[in-house]
Design a protein around this nucleic acid. Structure first.
Lengths: 246, 246
DNA sequence: TGGTATTTGTCCGTATGTATC
DNA sequence: GGATACATACGGACAAATACC
């Protein structure tokens, strides 16, 4: 039950995105247009929009507009969304843990139909195909498969992959990680997993898939991280205390 | 590297919370005090604070102040935090799925030392101890254990537990769910799990624990939800596009 | 019980900076 | 350079919840 003005506007914009009145990939009307449309101040508009930003519905582009990036593809059953803030890999080292990465595969290929379904990249897109084993404080924590759009993040080397890919994205390349969408599931182990991880008697593991979007709203990376169950932890804080501003 | 004024203030406040200069459970200095302290406008202060709100560091109380609720207890290794927005149980029905809940245990007990470690409730606190099997579209999805502080949410009945606990919290009782902290791990199955869930050949499952805080910053609920691996999905969106306000 | 001060919540207006076209 | 659009920051006004006398 929206009461406040910015909440009404927020819900209206959200509805219009969900119903494709504002289509995925297009820009919202400019703030000035929305001011006239809703008859309110600029602050109120920005507050409503910032709420959408936090939820990953839209993405602001300085000097251009606010782009809809809500790929409303509820193809999976039992699929519910939430929002978040912090990064991941960076956080690990920040918390005083040692990360070591071993690259086991580093090639470049083109996206086929199978990969298109998983990644969301169009067929034929040139990508780096990277597989890595990540050690946390000495023990193999996960086997990760990274698929990175070569046309957007060019010049990636095996040496870069041995460090942090995020570091490469933000420092070396011309891209910037703006939005990440993650999904966590539990899956059966495969012989591939067992080869690199000490899974003991676990017959399944935690799978976290990530999609990274850059400042242009373009998804340029897809990651599947298969984690040792006994090490894997994922935290999340939810709040309805306040909408954006306050 | 903080550039903008509100980001500097945000980082300073966060640091002071992390280093216990502003202690857990206390209130931050009022907005007017912070305005003088940082020499800026009220909007800028509020913007910095709203960022902390989103991350679950603090909680605003209309007419009172902004309370620190960041229980900085990094006792667990490999424990990294993120932030979020939407609820859970409500979302399921919103997405057109059928939820059925069967209560298998409904008693009230007092918190012992073992439960204190898990829940965070002090020893001796009277609680409802509820165990439920939750069916999603006909199949047993999870076995949940809910521990609810009786002194804060009194009058809970078995009939309420058969519906949504969230519904009861927000409608019947005098409490309101403001902040939820969730954690996702993967654990071995127990005979208890196998009794109620059709786990096929999975020997582990997805465990999601939740802690609910009310509008006073008091944690009044603890939940352990043990989920069928093949059904469980958890989504999260992260963004550094923008801090709170706009 | 009532009045007043304090504190947060909502909303508005304006100015300036910066990025894009 | 100029126009457009978002980003940051300031200021003021009033409402609502709370605390205290």
């Amino acid at each position: 039950m929206p009461k406040s003005k910015y909440d009404v506007i927020y819900n209206d914009l959200k509805m219009k995105i969900d119903t494709n009145i504002y289509e995925d990939g297009t820009y919202l009307p400019s703030e000035n247009t929305l001011i006239k449309l809703y008859g309110c101040s600029r602050n109120t508009i920005r507050r409503a929009i910032s709420h959408l930003i936090m939820e990953g519905y839209v993405q602001p582009h300085h000097g251009k507009g606010v782009r809809v990036i809500h790929s409303s593809s509820p193809n999976k059953k039992y699929d519910f969304t939430m929002s978040g803030i912090q990064g991941f890999t960076d956080t690990v080292t920040q918390n005083g843990h040692e990360v070591l990465t071993r690259v086991i595969v580093f090639t470049d290929i083109e996206v086929n139909e199978n990969l298109e379904r998983k990644t969301g990249f169009p067929v034929g897109t040139p990508i780096y195909y990277v597989q890595r084993v990540r050690y946390l404080d000495g023990t193999a924590k996960s086997v990760d498969t990274n698929l990175i759009r070569k046309d957007i993040v060019p010049g990636l080397t095996k040496a870069d992959a041995e460090k942090s890919l995020f570091y490469y994205f933000s420092n070396s390349a011309g891209t910037e990680v703006r939005t990440i969408k993650r999904k966590i599931t539990v899956e059966h182990t495969t012989p591939f997993d067992e080869k690199y991880l000490e899974l003991e008697d676990y017959n399944c593991l935690a799978v976290m898939t990530s999609k990274c979007y850059n400042e242009n709203g373009i998804q340029f990376e897809y990651t599947e991280s298969r984690n040792r169950p006994d090490i894997f932890v994922f935290n999340s804080v939810l709040t309805n205390s306040l909408k954006p501003n306050p």
